[in-house]
Amino acid sequence: MEILREIAAELERGEDEKVRMLTESALGQKVEAPMILDEGLIAGMEVVGKRFGAHEIFLPDVLLAARAMNAGLAVLEPHLGQGDVVTRGKVVIGTVQGDLHDIGKNLVGIMLAGAGFEVIDLGKDVSPQQFVDTARESKADVIGMSALLTTTMPMMKQVVSLLKKQGLDSSVRTVIGGAPVTEEYAREIGADAYGFDAANAVERVRGLVG
């Protein structure tokens, strides 16, 4: 459908006002809200994520596209019934206890939301118990943890252990990332996945939920 392609294209360009107007037009043309979300907004954001992963665009391009997505979502949300909401899964994210770096985590959150996931962002300096309690209470599919310090990486292991201890490790998967974190470390602590960067983290979450 042409208007959905236009929404996706303007979203890729980060044109929030155009996305807002086109979303209103699509609703005016009686296009179903879930279809606009899936084939317009999310489709556009997926292209953006892939292009960033391939180093074809700059990081701010991704963030401007995410803002355009939010502009479209704001128009769409009143038209999405409870049963209509197309969420690809629920992800609890945060920077681990003792660590205050949150730019990388914020980017992951924005890109996950853009990819259609429901994101619960616990912020920074998040204790293992907070991660696990929130995941249990919200029935999350994935916990995403970020650490930028070697001294705080062990907190990731504590989250994985706590999930196991509480019998949640089969229902709540874990993905970890951050500058000092490696694939090997993820294996060592029993995390389910390692995200090299924000775009890769989204791919890994897709892999865990899909």
Partner: peptide, 11 residues
Amino acid sequence: FDEGHPALGAT
């Protein structure tokens, strides 16, 4: 970031 300007925040 809090005020909804992540592109400028990241830059």
